[in-house]
Amino acid sequence: MGVDAREIQVGDVVGVRDETPAHHHRTPWFVKGKTGRIASISGPFLNPESRAHGGDGLPKRHLCSVEFKQVDIWGGRYCENDGDRLLVDIYEHWLEPG
């Protein structure tokens, strides 16, 4: 499930999984199901979804900074500039090839 950060690179188009598991996770609702582009990759970090529930956080996960066009996130609700962007940090296992 998700992508392996070793197989993706900066500039790649990725989608965000449209899921809302009951456990703690770091993916904001407004990017779920949306498509963006990898701006940078950092980590790997202990997985907070595991650590939040008493787990050891392993395997570690890469964190991808994904850049979206604001209009792709909010549609007509975004009333500022068409060129404006939104950068959201999303763990690799939340992403799918775009």
Binding site: R26, T27, P28, F45, P48, E80, R85, L87, D89
Partner: peptide, 10 residues
């Protein structure tokens, strides 16, 4: 260009 950064994780 305004680029908002949502600092959600680590």
């Amino acid at each position: 260009v305004v680029r908002v950064v949502d600092s959600t994780a680590d």
